[in-house]
């Protein structure tokens, strides 16, 4: 059984992995079991027991879903997402968004194809996890980034990811509280 564990309390929540797994599960019913943990110090994301290269691993496990695009290009965007798009320093983030904006001048999706690719997922996920980004998107500071971001948000696998995470995290809290009460009762 393939499983993915997302830490909802991680400083950078692994939205890209969460969205990728939602896309996989939309194509193959329940192919990936998604679980959540509520622990500050746990790894942000674990895929099949490993916390390394999780996004790349999910993508390469399902080539029928994510296509066979040049893995070099995807690797480049994974790096950009991980190193630049989660940054909270306003000046650095602005420069990264300006570069992404230039890529999207004449492209609807990041790799220039007709469909969402792994590069779009990993960048969108990184931006979704970054608290600095919401108002920048809303205010259309980088018009192309805003247009691209808004389009992907219309896809339920993207747009519904945050609500799914929040609800699942509430579920964990309730379960924990219920467990505590039970123990108290026993004692």
């Amino acid at each position: 059984m393939v499983n993915l564990v997302i830490n909802g309390k991680a400083p950078v929540v692994a939205y890209a992995e969460l969205i990728a797994s939602r896309i996989v599960n939309a194509a193959h019913k329940d192919a990936i079991t998604v679980e959540f943990v509520d622990e500050k110090n746990a790894a942000p994301v674990v895929f099949n027991g490993s916390s390394d290269d999780t996004f790349a691993k999910i993508i390469s496990t399902y080539p029928d879903v994510f296509g066979h695009e040049s893995s070099e290009e995807v690797a480049h965007w994974i790096k950009v997402a991980r190193e630049q798009l989660v940054v909270k320093n306003f000046q650095q983030l602005s420069q990264s968004l300006e570069r992404l904006d230039a890529v999207l001048n004449l492209r609807t999706f990041i790799l220039g194809g007709l469909k969402i690719s792994a590069a779009d997922i990993v960048c969108w996920g990184a931006l979704r996890s970054n608290g600095m980004v919401g108002s920048i998107i809303k205010n259309k500071v980088y018009v192309n980034v805003s247009r691209w971001y808004t389009l992907l948000e219309l896809n339920p696998s993207f747009g519904g990811a945050h609500e799914y995470l929040t609800k699942s995290m509430q579920g964990i809290k309730k379960a924990v509280t219920a467990g505590k009460k039970k123990e108290g009762h026993k004692a």
């Binding site: 609807t108 259309k140 247009r147 808004t150 389009l151 896809n155």
Partner: peptide, 9 residues
Amino acid sequence: DNTFALATY
């Protein structure tokens, strides 16, 4: 502001 003319997906 929109990818397509009617702001559709």
